[in-house]
């Protein structure tokens, strides 16, 4: 293994702490959250920083290391500079390729990321266990399936070892240590490597001319990238308020059931 290629799949997500209450009340993916910055979730930050540290560790062993950070979600421009300044060799923004965006399309997202990774070649893929909000953490698992490589989840720390990588991970309520050979996909969970390194203004200035790669759809034939996305599911946000009413039984039962049906939004005659 003369050259080690490490890729990190990540996603910048809206900072929902900054969404105003009025927007929560009518929340949908189509809503304008343009005033909300996009940030990295903690697991993705762990994956990005862990990749850089692993790269340094392998480089110290005399290996040539290449690192790439790629995403299928909109990529804030300041983050591009941060990633280059932090030390990533390549940054790929695939967000323009999935019409309608990557949300709630884990299979298509995994296929797209997989196609890019296959074209680049890879040894190790890292990802956060979950990027944020409604993300169910399916993309890494589907990506492993797409690429036909093993997946180790809930990793906390990673270190090079002869022939591969040593993984300390959470298995349910207990911790375990594994040794695995590459290629491999690992998701980072509650890692002590909690944040992407800070970069100085000087380092950012030095990469100010570098841009994220934005491949054309033609580079990935057969993925159905031009297909229309039917749209995200309808969102319901649970509210903290509850309504409690006592409905009398006995002779009043039919009337009570009708009232209950109305409260639950049922059609007339439909039983609650």
């Amino acid at each position: 293994m003369g050259v080690v290629k490490i890729a990190v799949c990540f996603k910048a997500v809206p900072d929902f702490d900054r969404v105003v209450e009025a927007d929560w009340e009518n929340f949908s993916l189509a809503g304008d959250l343009g005033y909300v910055q996009r940030i990295l979730g903690c697991f993705d930050e762990s994956a990005l920083e862990t990749a850089l540290r692993l790269g340094s560790a392998w480089a110290e062993e005399g290996k040539t290391v290449e690192t790439a950070a790629l995403t299928a979600a909109p990529l804030p421009s300041p983050l591009v500079k941060t990633l280059f300044a932090a030390g990533f060799d390549r940054v790929a923004d695939l967000s323009g390729l999935l019409r309608g965006g990557p949300e709630f399309r884990p299979r298509q997202t995994a296929a797209l990321l997989g196609a890019w990774l296959t074209s680049w070649g890879f040894d190790l893929i890292l990802a956060g266990r979950q990027a944020g909000w409604a993300d169910s953490g399916l993309v890494p698992l589907l990506l492993g399936e797409t690429l036909g490589i093993p997946v180790i989840t809930e990793a906390e720390t990673l270190a090079p070892c002869p022939g591969g990588i040593e993984v300390r991970r959470l298995n349910g309520t207990r911790r375990e240590e594994l040794r695995a050979s590459l290629p491999l996909l690992i998701t980072l969970g509650n890692s002590p490597v909690a944040a992407l390194r800070a970069v100085t203004l000087g380092a950012r200035m030095a990469v100010s001319q570098r841009q994220a790669e934005k491949p054309e759809p033609e580079a990935f034939p057969g993925l159905g990238l031009s297909e229309e996305f039917p749209g995200p599911p309808r969102f319901i946000r649970e509210t903290r308020s509850k309504t409690c009413r006592f409905l009398p039984g006995g002779e009043d039962l039919p009337q009570s059931l009708a009232e209950a049906g109305a409260l639950l939004g049922l059609k007339p005659g439909e039983k609650p």
Partner: peptide, 25 residues
Amino acid sequence: RPVESWLQTRNDVCYRMDEPVYHKQ
């Protein structure tokens, strides 16, 4: 909206004063 968002989050820093938000970086 940007003003409303600022209004809603403007004092949040107080709740993170005893967390190593920057030290960890």
